[in-house]
Simulated assay, not measured.
Amino acid sequence: MNLILQSLSAERNAIDRIASLADVTATDISSAGRNAWRCDDVAYSESLKALIDTACYGVGIDCAWLPSAPKLGDFKLLAMDMDSTLITIECIDEIADMQGLKPQVSAITEAAMRGEIEFNESLTRRVALLKGLDAAALQRVFDERLQLSPGAENMLAAVKAAGIKTLLVSGGFTFFTDRMKAALGLDYAHSNVLEIVDGKLTGKVVGGIVNAEEKKLTIERVCAELNIAPSQAIVMGDGANDLNMMKIAGLSVAFRAKPVVRAQASVALNFVGLDGILPILA
């Protein structure tokens, strides 16, 4: 098993201490890029993984366990969730803030991302609270609050250079995904449509809801269009509604994710940026 360690700030001696838990000496650790190190052919066990995962989390180090050495060029599609993955915010929470309802909406969002509330119900409840809000609030959120997650631009530049197609698939809204697709030069985007009448949000979405199953189906549709298998896709997300699409991917990446997602992903990036996938696939 290969072990990749990454950190934004850890000293090399901290990396050596973590590696020593797997009986890997300092001379057997190779550089995997800036602030990233690789230990190959580690004698893996579930107990060792639990020990190292816990030790890493406690000192701000990301660790990835991979049974082989996949390369970026092995993949043909990068599919990303938007809110709290490609970008730092939950757009619906920030829209709600314009109504003075952010605490109420954020609480529902958090419960949904932990998998405690079914996504369709959570979205319906949250959107209903936005009824009557001036649609101009959406542009304010985009202009004033939306920021890319750390490492997003580096990651996208690398995957595009490798000829990998990009898909933004979100339980959020087309107002934001369409603008992100255009701004970042992404190939595909799919999300929910907020209903707007006379310049006001109606508290409803138009058409079907992009939930966990629809996210998975979107991956499958795009893969079919590209004539590739889902195993040739990298899928990144942070919430419970990302799990279905992550399960069919060749590499699933939990980015600063809820515990239920971290536990099921191929790789969890808790501290480094989105470009933390690059040393893993170097």
Rank of each mutant, 00 (worst) to 15 (best):
A263V: 04
L243V: 10
E118Y: 03
K215I: 14
A10D: 04
A268T: 07
L101Q: 10
F142S: 06
A249W: 02
S20T: 12
V272A: 07
D187S: 14
I95C: 11
V253Q: 07
L278E: 09
V210S: 13
A112Q: 03
A36Y: 02
G237Y: 10
C39E: 01
D178T: 12
V105D: 08
A26G: 01
S7P: 03
G185R: 15
L201F: 11
K216L: 07
M180W: 15
A282W: 01
K247V: 03
L21W: 00
G100S: 03
G33M: 05
C56Y: 01
G100M: 07
E214T: 10
M155G: 13
S231D: 11
L138G: 04
V159G: 14
L148W: 15
T166R: 14
K204I: 04
A249L: 04
I277P: 06
F142P: 10
L72K: 00
L269P: 09
A224N: 14
G100D: 08
L5R: 02
D53T: 10
L146Q: 09
G185K: 15
E121Y: 05
D83K: 03
C63M: 11
N192S: 02
D28Y: 00
N244H: 11
Q99E: 11
L77K: 06
E94S: 06
N2A: 04
E121P: 00
D74L: 05
V272L: 09
I15S: 00
K216Q: 12
D97H: 04
A182L: 13
V42S: 01
D187L: 12
A157T: 13
L48Q: 08
A135T: 05
I117N: 02
G207I: 05
L8D: 02
G185P: 05
D62C: 03
K181S: 10
A55G: 06
I234M: 10
P103E: 15
M1A: 06
I95S: 11
